[in-house]
């Protein structure tokens, strides 16, 4: 049984500027996988490669053993329809209400009855704490609320794989905690695989099964594994420093 996502020798670059090279890791089915690292290390770039918005310089990305990068971008529909993506800023369509932002994929892609669409929109917004905000436009709500609405839209089609780019940034502690709870429940109830780009250490320790640390200094993957194990026992001091919030930890035994 192949892994849900397999990354083989992935090198990402902007022109001649290499962002990361030789990334090798697997994300298993129903796993919550966090991508972490310092600012500008290429976390969001890696996410953009995973969803096909950028092409790798070298290497490949496989979903359930099928090569995503080798597939013609025009033929990637069957892959992409399994993705739900929340972008860093929410990326809501500003001319549509929050309800329409969520219902559009349901109506246009899933073609389901209007009553079910209404129920689903109401339910998804309630899950992210925005019950009753169906008729609001993105410009009428705060940045944190836009971000939560972006998560509701990403969940619209019950995706197999949910990609979340900095979902907790800018959220108040209660919303952040609620979001962690939601991510765990989505994995447990729908069997979604969830890939999160995040800086939030509390979230990483609460929910992530596995993390990858992108090392800005070497432009390679600094560590891969369980977050608590890496915090206490990683061979890479940069990883231990990062996961201990900059406090110098004792070296691993």
């Amino acid at each position: 049984m192949p892994a849900r996502i397999t990354i083989k020798n992935l090198t990402m670059a902007y022109g001649s500027l290499v962002v990361m090279r030789d990334l090798n890791f697997e994300i298993q089915d129903k796993e919550i996988f966090a991508i972490m690292g310092g600012s500008g290390c290429g976390k969001s770039t890696l996410l953009r490669h995973l969803i096909g918005l950028q092409e790798p310089t070298q290497g490949s990305i496989l979903y359930d053993g099928r090569d995503f990068t080798a597939t013609d971008p025009a033929q990637r529909g069957p892959f992409i329809q399994r993705f739900g993506v929340m972008y860093q800023s929410g990326a809501l369509w500003s001319s549509l209400t929050l309800g329409e932002n969520i219902s559009m994929p349901l109506e246009e892609i899933a073609h389901i009855p209007a009553k079910t669409v209404r129920d689903l929109v109401s339910y998804k917004l309630s899950l992210v704490g925005l019950a009753g905000y169906e008729d609001y436009y993105p410009a009428e709500i705060s940045g944190g609320m836009q971000k939560r609405a972006g998560i509701a839209r990403a969940m619209a089609l019950d995706p197999d794989i949910l990609f979340l780019d900095e979902p907790g940034a800018g959220l108040d502690p209660l919303s952040s905690r609620r979001l962690d709870d939601l991510i765990l429940r989505l994995r447990d109830s729908q069997g979604s695989t969830i890939v999160i780009v995040t800086h939030e250490l509390s979230s990483i320790f609460n929910i992530a099964d596995k993390v990858i640390f992108l090392d800005t200094a070497t432009h390679t993957q600094g560590a891969l594994g369980n977050p608590a194990d890496l915090r206490d026992h990683s061979d890479n001091p940069a990883v231990r420093l990062f996961l201990n919030r900059g406090e110098h930890p004792t070296p691993p035994p």
Binding site: Y123, S126, L127, G129, L130, A131, G132, Y133, D135, Y136, R178, D181, L182, R185, L186, D188, S189
Partner: peptide, 19 residues
Amino acid sequence: ENLRGLLTLALAVPEENAR
């Protein structure tokens, strides 16, 4: 259990008054 958890989460926040 999972369904109960999701519904509890969704019902926990009161609904914003309709516009």
